[in-house]
Design a protein around this nucleic acid. Structure first.
Length: 554
RNA sequence: UGGGGUGUGGCCAAAUUGGUAAGGCACCUGACUCUGAAUCAGGGGAUUGUAGGUUCGAGUCCUACCACCCCAGCCA
């Protein structure tokens, strides 16, 4: 793609990148996706992944997969594995690597020495509390540490002791000497290195001094030749510090940081802390619960990665914090699945129908299109017999004006089969609910069309009682009833976010479907055959998303 | 309160050097239809945060104000 083209410059980040390419500032673009391996990836990360990998793909550059693993106490190998799996699932590949900030610890330490030698950093022996107290406030300047002016040689010795493990945790910290009176608090002599005796998931006990994000990130970027370091808005006022490091440390390149607004979605929460609480408190079944906005959850739910990528393209990239409507994600999923998902018939809440003029032990297999949107998907055969299951919602004892499905005296079509007319209904005297619907069929309408051209208003899905397989159906819905759950999200959990239906009759072909398959249950919605809980002959179907205005209305 | 950002229809989001508000989602209507889906065709909705100013003309320039977000970790 031509980076100068209007098509490429869809958003302000791509515009900046395109300009740098056109001006010749960079011959090749290198971006990076730098998660900290301390949690699972969610949709918000997907936006960043699509942006960074997308730009690399579109410009013929590269995007490095890099772990920002500078805080051993919170990070683990389990997270790096899940993150790599999620990125791969989303559909992206990285050339070299994956890279790790921890691979640069030696270089970062050398950079620390360089800064000290230049008089741009010093080892501060105040306690964390003292440092905090001296930092000042939003409106008052901070004051310099008594160690601020100590000779470089002295700091260098301390620095070596820090690295050698001669000093206890918290004994001192390396600080940049910038400006204690800066209105930007990030510039009031920020900490660069701290002592932490913790086993790192990759470097083990090799180090007891670890760099802070603000120190490690620009150096990591520069070492990898990153041209554009794209991050979220909250790092905007860290940019002066990022630039300070890049300018004052001897580095092979000068990356540029660009910030964009992170994604937020209605009806869910995306903060790592809240997601963790959701899991820990048992509101969901785990990180990959299909209701979770995590990539693992969405994958389990059955969201196609293509749909998720499409969604990320559609939300756009800008600097205004915004909350995207969940409906957009659902739209992307439907649009993808409408073309891709083979159709089957299955009944969620069964009601028995007897075709009284159909032979007692009669049976016939009728051809059905697998996907009306895609002729190449072919056809399959569906068994028809005298006793059928239909959806309870498709029958009404007292049909309203707007209800045009089955009722006594009404004629409807059974998908791919026959026209049937309801003659009477048997009702449970206790509840008043219909328990059996009696109908007659018109043999001349075999296949679903009437030779005399008469029309029916409704087409119902159905399953032969005798031939039915059974499935467990999990109806997933939005995790929160409220558009923006906020901090009292616990009170806004959607009590109906999961409804499990056992023994739902499904057509034989569906009972045999392979795990992981995504299908459409006609007139009901899109489902994914759960990879974990399905058994041969008894699939567990996760609802990905319902059909628009599904068959459960008046 | 200091600093850094952002404010365009319900939700996102465009708008070359100021020239008289794209598009998508959502919603509504009609057509079509063997999925009340899809598809197709229409439609409603914006005094572009507010108030002034410059200009023949401002979302775009100037001034003031308001609202919201981020920052005082030895987290990222």
């Amino acid at each position: 793609m031509d980076p100068g083209s209007k098509e490429f410059r869809r958003d302000f980040v791509r515009s900046l990148v395109g300009a740098d390419l056109e001006s010749g500032k960079h011959a090749r673009i290198v971006t990076r996706f730098p998660p900290e391996p301390n949690g699972y990836l969610h949709v918000g990360h997907a936006k960043s992944i699509c942006l960074n990998f997308g730009i690399a793909l579109e410009t013929g550059g590269q995007c490095n997969m890099r772990f920002d693993d500078t805080n051993p106490e919170k990070e683990s190998d389990e997270y790096v594995r899940s993150i790599l799996e999620d990125v791969r699932w989303l559909g992206f590949e990285w050339g070299g690597g994956p890279y790790y900030a921890s691979d640069y610890f030696e270089t970062i330490f050398a950079a620390a020495c360089e800064l000290v030698e230049k008089g741009l950093a010093y080892v501060d022996e105040q306690t964390a509390d003292e440092i905090r107290a001296a930092r000042g406030t939003l409106t008052e300047a901070g004051s310099g540490s008594k160690w601020r002016e100590r000779p470089a040689s002295e700091s260098l010795i301390r620095l070596d002791e820090m690295r050698a493990g001669a000093l206890p945790d918290g004994a001192c910290v390396l600080r940049a000497r910038i400006d204690m009176a800066s209105p930007n608090i990030n510039l009031r002599d920020p900490s660069l290195l701290r002592i932490r005796r913790a086993t790192h998931h990759r470097t083990g006990d090799q180090w007891c001094v670890y760099p802070m994000y603000d120190f490690a990130h620009p150096i990591s970027d520069a070492l990898e030749g990153i041209t554009h370091s794209i991050c979220t808005l909250e790092f905007e006022d860290h940019r002066p510090l990022y630039d300070w490091v890049v300018a004052n440390v001897t580095l092979p390149s000068r990356p540029r940081q660009i910030e964009f607004a992170r994604l937020e979605l209605t009806h869910t929460i995306l903060s790592k802390r809240k997601l963790l609480e959701l899991v820990k408190e048992g509101h969901v079944a785990g990180w990959d619960d299909p209701r979770m906005p995590t990539l693992a959850g969405m994958r389990r739910r059955g969201v196609p990665p293509e749909a998720l990528r499409d969604f990320c393209e559609r939300v756009g990239v800008a600097k205004a914090n915004s909350v995207v409507d969940m409906a957009l994600l659902e739209h992307c999923v439907r649009e993808n699945l409408n073309l891709e998902a083979p159709r089957y018939m299955g009944v969620l809440r069964p009601l028995k129908v007897v075709i009284e003029n159909y032979p007692e032990d009669g049976e016939e297999w009728l051809p059905a299109r697998n996907n009306p949107e895609d002729p190449s998907a072919g056809t399959r055969e569906v068994p028809f017999a005298r006793e059928l299951w239909i959806e309870r919602d498709d029958f009404r004892i007292e049909p309203g004006k707007k209800f045009w499905r089955l009722a006594v005296g009404r004629e409807v079509r059974l998908r791919w089969a026959y026209f049937i007319t309801c003659t009477r209904v048997e009702v449970d005297p206790a509840t008043g609910e219909p328990v059996l619907v009696r109908c007659t069929y018109d043999p001349s309408t075999r296949g679903g069309d009437s030779p005399d051209g008469r029309k029916v208003k409704a087409t119902l899905h159905w399953v032969s009682v005798r031939h039915a397989g059974t499935a467990e159906v999990r109806l997933y819905d939005r995790l929160f009833s409220d558009m923006s759950p906020g901090d009292d999200w616990r009170e806004r959990l959607n009590a109906d976010s999961l409804e499990v239906l056992q023994d739902c009759p499904v057509e034989p072909a569906l009972a045999q479907i392979e795990k992981g398959a995504r299908v459409q249950l006609e007139r009901v919605g899109y489902f994914c055959v759960d990879a974990r809980d399905s058994r041969v002959g008894r699939p567990a179907l996760n609802r990905i998303v319902g059909l628009k205005g599904a068959a459960t209305q008046t």
